[in-house]
């Protein structure tokens, strides 16, 4: 279980998260929707301790992330797969080495590593790309390698930062199916950050909307689809004018 408890985080006096509270239950896929720049990536980074909260806390499996010592933090990170928004592949390494990196860290034998790498690549429809370098791949392919790198670890949690943004509709649908399949097969708990509303409906068990630093609404896909909240309605219908001021949302919170 991942619990965001009253999380506050700002950069250069500008608040980004202000009282962000959300529970992600074991086995579910939680989608976090929000405008560009609303702090979705910032929230995710707190789960693995890449950022420290100004106030509040993130609790994973009962442990407060920013209070863990190094060894425990490492153990926690080994249980979490993180799919970066821009893939963040190590560009001096081949696809195989990228995926094997985390496995090697967890002490997997070489032959098992090879199997896992192959399996993960097949899952993202990239079988045979083992020896290519990230610079030789398209943006969408890199993203899929990023997903493979997380899945290969067979983690308890996977955090997807905009897994389908910037992909063509078909590839996006493939990724969506992949996320659903990963959950069905391994029972992994997922957090999917996105502003792709179609993807949200496909992969989400529940959907939460981040707006102005807090969760505006959280509910099942159905509840969100039928919502009367004007801000959420505007977002899911993609209307340019309405209750939500997209501009302030974009710039974070203007104080």
């Amino acid at each position: 279980m991942i619990e965001f408890r009253n999380l506050h985080k700002g950069f250069n006096q500008k608040p980004v998260l202000a009282g962000f509270t959300l529970d992600v239950r074991d086995g579910e896929t939680m989608v976090v929707l929000g405008y560009s720049g609303s702090g979705k990536s910032v929230a995710l980074k707190h789960v693995v301790g890449l950022l420290e909260p100004d106030a509040g806390e993130v609790v994973v499996d009962g442990e407060v992330v920013h209070q863990l010592d190094r060894a425990r933090l490492m153990a926690l990170r080994a249980r979490i797969g993180y799919v970066f928004q821009f893939a963040a592949l190590l560009d001096s390494m081949t696809v195989r080495e990228n995926i094997g990196l985390g496995l090697a860290r967890q002490g997997l034998a070489e032959t098992d590593t090879d199997d896992r790498v192959r399996e993960a690549l097949a899952l993202v429809d990239l079988a045979g790309s083992d020896d290519r370098y990230p610079s030789e791949l398209s943006g969408g392919m890199r993203k899929r390698v990023g997903i493979a790198r997380a899945i290969a670890l067979r983690p308890r949690y996977i955090l997807y930062d905009e897994p389908t943004t910037g992909l063509d509709p078909v590839t996006a649908a493939v990724i969506d199916r992949l996320i659903v399949r990963a959950r069905e097969r391994t029972g992994v708990t997922g957090v999917v950050v996105t502003h792709d509303i179609r993807s949200a409906y496909t992969v989400g068990d529940r959907i939460a909307m981040l707006y102005r630093g807090t969760i505006r609404q959280v509910g099942t896909v159905e509840q969100i689809q039928k919502t009367h909240d004007p801000v959420v309605r505007q977002f899911i219908e993609g209307r340019p004018e309405g209750a939500a001021d997209a501009e302030t949302a974009f710039a974070g919170i203007v104080t």
Partner: peptide
């Protein structure tokens, strides 16, 4: 390019 962050998340 967040490669350092990626290393951290890979423990």
């Amino acid at each position: 390019t967040e490669q350092v962050d990626a290393l951290e998340t890979l423990a």
